[in-house]
Amino acid sequence: MAVERAPAGTSLIDVLDRVLDKGIVIDAYVRVSLVGIDLVSVEARIVVASVETYLKYAEAIGMTGVASRPLVAPPAQPDLERVMAENVELRRRLEELS
């Protein structure tokens, strides 16, 4: 018997596989690429309205991170900034290596 196509939302694993880290990710470095078609690199500096907003974004990034890994207590604010900066630096180094 031939295979039947299942609608997108039927398997939670398939959904999680996509929504957690694919699509537009607010993250540490800027890059727009379309896998398989061709590669477009875009340098976009996104300036947000205020420090407060930035922190909320940072929190939003933390959200998926914390939620999808073993739960750890969110760091205090100065720590968060330090960790974010470290994250940026590590990603940059990772980029250099790959």
Partner: peptide, 30 residues
């Protein structure tokens, strides 16, 4: 490939696997 392979075929999905956009947010110089 009946009997040998089983296919799990899903969709249509939004193009999650083909859009890889990572955005970095910076602070405005307020």
């Amino acid at each position: 490939y009946e009997n040998l392979l089983s296919f799990k075929y899903t969709g249509p999905w939004p193009p999650y696997n083909f859009v890889n956009i990572k955005l970095r947010l910076e602070r405005a110089d307020a």
